[in-house]
Write a protein that binds this DNA or RNA. Structure first.
Length: 394
RNA sequence: GCGUCGGUGGUAGAGUGGUCAAUUACAUCAGACUGUAAAUCUGACGCCUUCGGGCUACGCAGGUUCAAAUCCUGCCCGGCGCA
């Protein structure tokens, strides 16, 4: 993997560049399409290609459980398995330490509101994951079987899955976890980072896979900066910025980190993808983002438009024969009306999920492409302002 | 015509004297979703409300009872059986 910066935007940390992988070039900033189980839900590989997606990210935990990393390896890696021939990434399974652990059965999500209370993090009954210094013990959500993920085993699984870029195994902490826990977890994630590097270097002698270290630290400036310095000093090929944020200050928290991370390596903001968050992240120097939002929102009937989100199931759209967006060039908008989409959703037709995912992914992919274009021509900040004023107007 | 079973909120269908404005599902109306336990989840869903409660409701009309969707009588309507 080779990263190069084409242009930096004056007065900000934003940059436009390219990442060259053996499966193709990514023009950054770039939105990474999420295909957790070696499929972008509701879409074929052909559809992913025609949307102009540049890179697809799959999940180690999910593919390890089903069908098994060995099978994916035999298939030639998850990209080949799913007929995606462009650049690929895998997440380490670290996020599942959070989503199946501390967040299990709760309303806590990755991004918290500013006034979210700090809560105790002691394990609750029914959780499917628990964390120790050795690794994370998972109880499979599929069949209840017990599995230990360690930094080493995550590297091994990701080696089998065969992505171009992979992530170190980390602990994604809850936004409601107290400072002391965040600090303790950070120390652990740092130790794990070194174990990941060691195992990765044994497995991948020719350095065919790029390994990204993950910066955690919750919402705390001192912890974020410490993580950026310590993880940033290790010989990773790039960096992921993970963990929890407060809705209102993703930009500042990510900014603390990116000011300290090595400038010449790509930075991937993990799991972030709402329009404003993408603008903020690009402005403070992120190059890659993955997010499930376009596809999950789409499946649930929420569609992106330049005037904000709309819920296509709402009664008002039943007789609206206009496209979702008049000037949208996606397949869905050029062939179908809002009324048709509403009908498909209400009738529980599978095609609804496909058409909505196509539109939402097109919207977000194109949005990040335009961010890149406006970094190159210098108009990024005004583009951000114009877009957000319209998208978030009441 | 006789006999018999049954008529419950938009629909299906529970409930068979008080804890019933009435289980549940679907439909409807909204909302949530940010490294995917997610084609998922949440709320509302008779009318009014100062959110304490008030009012009208379980085919229709009477009746019994402190109390009726629930028991009794008559009527109307429907299924089935026999003529």
């Amino acid at each position: 993997m080779k990263f190069s910066i084409e242009k930096k935007l004056e007065g900000t940390l934003a940059r436009a560049g390219t990442i060259e992988t053996k499966n193709g070039v990514i023009q950054t900033p770039a939105f990474v399409t999420v295909g957790t189980k070696a499929t972008v839900k509701a879409l074929t590989a052909e559809q992913i290609r025609s949307l102009g997606a540049q890179v697809v990210l799959a999940n180690t935990y999910h593919l390890y459980l089903q069908p098994g990393a060995d099978i994916v390896e035999k298939a030639g890696g998850f990209g080949k398995f799913m007929d995606w021939h462009g650049p690929t990434m895998t997440d380490s399974g670290g996020f599942q330490a959070f989503s199946l652990g501390a967040a299990f059965g709760t309303a806590v999500s990755k991004v918290a509101s500013a006034d979210a209370p700090v809560e105790d993090v002691s394990p609750t009954a029914g959780q499917l994951a628990s964390v120790t210094d050795e690794g994370v013990t998972f109880k499979s959500h599929i069949d209840g079987s017990i599995h230990l993920f360690t930094p080493e085993s995550s590297m091994e699984a990701q080696w089998s899955l065969g992505a171009d870029m992979i992530f170190a195994f980390d602990e994604c902490t809850s936004p409601t976890a107290p400072y002391e826990y965040q600090k303790k977890s950070l120390a652990r994630t740092y130790k794990w980072a070194k174990r990941c590097l060691a195992r990765h270097n044994e497995l991948d002698i020719k350095n065919g896979q790029a390994l990204f270290g993950v910066v955690q630290g919750g919402r705390h400036q001192d912890l974020r900066e410490e993580a950026a310095r310590t993880i940033g000093s290790l010989p990773f090929d790039g960096f992921g910025i993970g963990g929890s944020f407060t809705k209102d200050d993703i930009a500042s928290a990510v900014g603390w980190v990116n000011k300290l991370l090595p400038e010449d390596k790509p930075r991937h903001l993990l799991g972030i993808g709402e329009p404003r968050d993408l603008f903020d992240a690009v402005e403070v120097g992120c190059d890659l983002f993955d997010c499930i939002a376009p596809t999950r929102m789409g499946r649930h009937g929420t569609l992106y438009t330049k005037d904000g989100r709309l819920n296509i199931r709402n009664a008002q759209f039943m007789t609206d024969f206009n496209p979702i967006e008049k000037d949208c060039t996606c397949y869905t908008c050029s062939h179908h009306s809002r009324a048709y989409l509403t009908h498909l959703f209400r009738a529980d037709e599978m095609t609804a999920a496909t058409l909505a995912s196509v539109h939402n992914l097109h919207f977000i992919l194109r949005l990040v492409e335009r961010m890149r274009e406006t970094i190159l021509d210098g108009s990024f900040m005004s583009f951000k302002q114009v877009f957000c004023n319209r998208y978030y107007k009441q």
